[in-house]
C-alpha cells in the first residue's frame, strides 16, 4: 500500500512545461523524480522525503508513471489551497489521486491509469562549482521575467558581492544587478537561455530563496529547497561559436 499527502501541489506547476510524463519513484524514504526535457537541455530532479508528507506510507518500491500534463490540470482546478494525496494499492496499473480543499471540505477523487514510461536512469556527476549564490526567489523570478520580455538569453557575471544578469537583443540591452553574500572561488561569466530560467523560476512559491550554482562550461544548477526535500533544475551551458 502506498499513501502520500502533499501540501505543496504548486510543485507540479513548476515542472509541467519541462517534462510531460515522468516516473515517480516511491520508496519508504520518500518520492523521487529525475527527468530530462525533450530538447535535452534541462534536467529536473525532485526529492521529497517521507517526513514532508502527512501522512506517508509506502511498504514496497513502486514506480508510478504519471502524466504531468494531466496532473497539472487536476491541480490547477483545485486551487492553491488544496492538498494532493496519492494512493496506490497492490495493483500497479492504476493509482488514486485525491484533492482536498481544507477550507470547504470538498474532496475530489480520480482513478488514474499508470503510464508505461520507458525512462532511462540518468547519472548526474558531482560537480564543484565556482560560485554558489543564494538570492530571494521572487527577485530571481522578477529579473528573469523582466529581461525575457525583450531578450532571449542572459549573461551571468558574478563577483564577490554582486551577481549581474545582462542581456542584449535587436532592440538593445538590459541588465539587473543583485547583492549577495555568498562565497565565490573567483569571478565567473556565463550565458544561459532566459526562456528556461523563466521556466525554472515558476518554482518560486516553493521557497523564499533560490540557490544558483555556477561554473563556466558545466551545467548550471538552480535549486529550490522545499520542506524535507528539494527541486533542482540543471541546465546545459551555451558556448560561443
Amino acid at each position: 500500500l502506498f499513501h502520500a499527502r502533499f501540501e505543496q501541489a504548486g510543485l507540479v506547476d513548476a515542472i509541467k512545461d519541462l517534462i510531460q510524463d515522468s516516473d515517480f519513484h516511491c520508496r519508504d524514504s520518500g518520492i523521487a523524480l529525475r527527468n530530462m526535457d525533450n530538447s535535452q537541455v534541462a534536467v529536473v530532479v525532485i526529492l521529497l522525503e517521507a517526513g514532508g508528507f502527512l501522512p506517508y506510507h509506502c511498504d514496497r518500491r513502486l514506480n508510478l508513471g504519471i502524466s504531468l500534463t494531466s496532473l497539472t490540470k487536476i491541480v490547477h482546478y483545485a486551487g492553491d489551497e488544496a492538498t494532493l494525496a496519492l494512493k496506490a494499492n497492490d495493483n500497479p496499473d492504476t493509482f488514486n489521486l485525491v484533492l482536498e480543499c481544507l477550507q470547504t471540505g470538498c474532496i475530489i477523487k480520480y482513478d488514474i491509469k499508470s503510464r508505461d514510461i520507458d525512462q532511462e536512469h540518468l547519472e548526474i556527476p558531482k560537480t564543484d562549482y565556482a560560485a554558489t549564490i543564494t538570492i530571494p526567489s521572487a527577485e530571481f523570478q522578477r529579473i528573469c521575467r523582466n529581461l525575457s520580455q525583450l531578450l532571449e538569453s542572459v549573461a551571468n557575471e558574478a563577483s564577490e558581492e554582486r551577481i549581474k544578469f545582462s542581456s542584449s537583443g535587436d532592440i538593445g540591452s538590459g541588465s539587473a544587478t543583485l547583492r549577495h553574500n555568498s562565497d565565490l572561488t573567483g569571478p565567473i561569466a556565463l550565458t544561459i537561455s532566459l526562456k528556461y530560467l523563466v521556466n525554472f523560476s515558476k518554482a518560486t512559491a516553493l521557497s523564499y530563496s533560490v540557490t544558483l550554482s555556477l561554473s563556466s562550461e558545466v551545467p548550471q544548477l538552480v535549486e529550490y529547497k522545499v520542506e524535507s526535500g528539494f527541486a533542482r533544475f540543471y541546465f546545459a551551458p551555451q558556448i560561443g561559436e
Partner: peptide, 14 residues
C-alpha cells in the same frame, strides 16, 4: 553567437 549544448554531453544515461 551562442550555441546551446546538450546535457547528454555531461550526464550519462544508464
Amino acid at each position: 553567437v551562442q550555441k546551446q549544448q546538450s546535457l547528454l554531453s555531461f550526464f550519462t544515461k544508464a
